[in-house]
Design a protein around this nucleic acid. Structure first.
Lengths: 241, 241
DNA sequence: GACTGTGAATACCTTCACAGCA
DNA sequence: TGCTGTGAAGGTATTCACAGTC
């Protein structure tokens, strides 16, 4: 596990602490802070405390945790006052890479690929879907927001021109691995994978898996625990299942 | 964080260790094992070693980790031989709750809700979509696999009859919280939430969030680190972004 | 007084090393 | 010999307690 590139941001702008100090902070948490800060901005606020942020997040994250995370980014708060929202949001956006434009290629334009495209472009202005691929002749040639769905066979040619940074894999499990390899060979260094298999990709390429069935299994596991407990206490219960 | 109900499974069947000993094992990992075991079963195998399992999982999980996890479920392996696949898969299925039938209600039947319904019913035979709700008049009345999409206003009436155990929230962020409350009030104790907000639900109800934008932010964060490093080394590079 | 920043303490999860068995 | 099972060690994330600052 080598974490490369731990220097400061480029240019004149001081981006607080070197990113090396980010050990121990979870990026999705930082993203949640950023989201909450935008919300506070829209509400007209200019400062916020760690407790206020925790409240905006439904107290799913402790204020202590928030302070620890934010202090890792640099001296952004004022003791006794709280955090100034604008510079904090800006700093978070920089750390999260939200100040760049990202070009996304989607492989597999079924319902899932379609849903992802709509969701992510609505959520982050700088996320652009730049290429869409599918295998099915029924889908190829369709357009989505000016983008024409291309054949998977065209990936090599199209991707070279489209210059995408992020690949999304929304194809059936059986088709995922070769597509991951193709993305990797074409220089796409970040993959979001919805297929329920472990992709085999090498070093500079990073993968995040969205494990829908795995998340469901957490729910069914917990519900089963409840069933066992209830069964012990109330003798078989109302027989719903 | 109280983990309720930590006794054995019911009935004559011995389900190995009490589930209390499952501290430290991640349920998605157990689910991955189960998936790999089914794969091995289909390939005609009857036993497998922890190393063999690791290989099936693309070595994303260490064999030591696998042994630790499985040993928490009871004495399922034989030293020198490996694990007998059938009883192991059965035990995992029980722990994961995969031996029950689960009735799923989906709120929000846009592309995402649709994709989820198709995906999850294809993956697990005992997951059934039993009710679908949407707000849009254009969607209400459509059918999916014999299920008619109902108005969200009908949730109270329909859910009482449908007897669902799991609610899936695939509506816009603004609509998510009231729907979560409604699910909770109607006795649905497990929610899978795709909306990018922290739901406020109380004690017996459990929530899992699928945070698509959060996962994307991990990718953009890592890519930004690379950018900073490359920029330092190659002076602005090829100017792709 | 209010709130941030942070070392120390704790809890948790993973890896290691090896004992125990077939 | 081959592989599981597990205490011990190591590492990482979270919480606590409080010092520091406005």
């Amino acid at each position: 596990m080598i974490d490369p590139a731990l220097r400061r941001g480029p240019g004149e702008r001081a981006h607080g602490a070197p990113l090396a100090s980010l050990v121990g902070v979870s990026i999705p948490r930082l993203y949640a802070y950023h989201r909450a800060l935008r919300q506070a901005q829209e509400a007209g606020k200019t400062t916020i405390t760690s407790h206020g942020l925790a409240a905006l997040l439904g107290h799913t994250i402790a204020s202590t945790q928030i302070r620890k995370d934010l202090s890792a980014l640099g001296p952004l708060g004022r003791r006794g006052q709280g955090y100034a929202i604008d510079p904090l949001a800006e700093q978070l956006a920089w750390v999260l890479g939200l100040e760049h434009d990202w070009r996304i290629a989607i492989a597999g334009f079924g319902y899932l690929g379609h849903a992802f495209a709509s969701f992510i472009t609505a959520r982050e202005a700088r996320f652009r879907v730049a290429a869409i691929f599918d295998q099915s002749p029924a889908v190829i040639g369709q357009t989505w927001q000016d983008i024409t769905v291309q054949s998977i066979g065209e990936m090599d040619r199209v991707l070279a021109a489209a210059g995408c940074n992020i690949g999304v894999i929304a194809v059936p499990a059986g088709a995922a691995q070769p597509i991951a390899k193709r993305f990797a060979d074409l220089g796409v260094r970040a993959l979001l994978n919805f297929a329920p298999i472990a992709l085999d990709v090498r070093a500079p390429v990073i993968v995040r898996n969205i494990d829908l069935a795995g998340e469901m299994s957490i729910l069914t596991h917990r519900l089963t625990l409840d069933l066992v407990a209830d069964g012990d206490d109330v003798e078989a219960g109302a027989g719903s299942f």
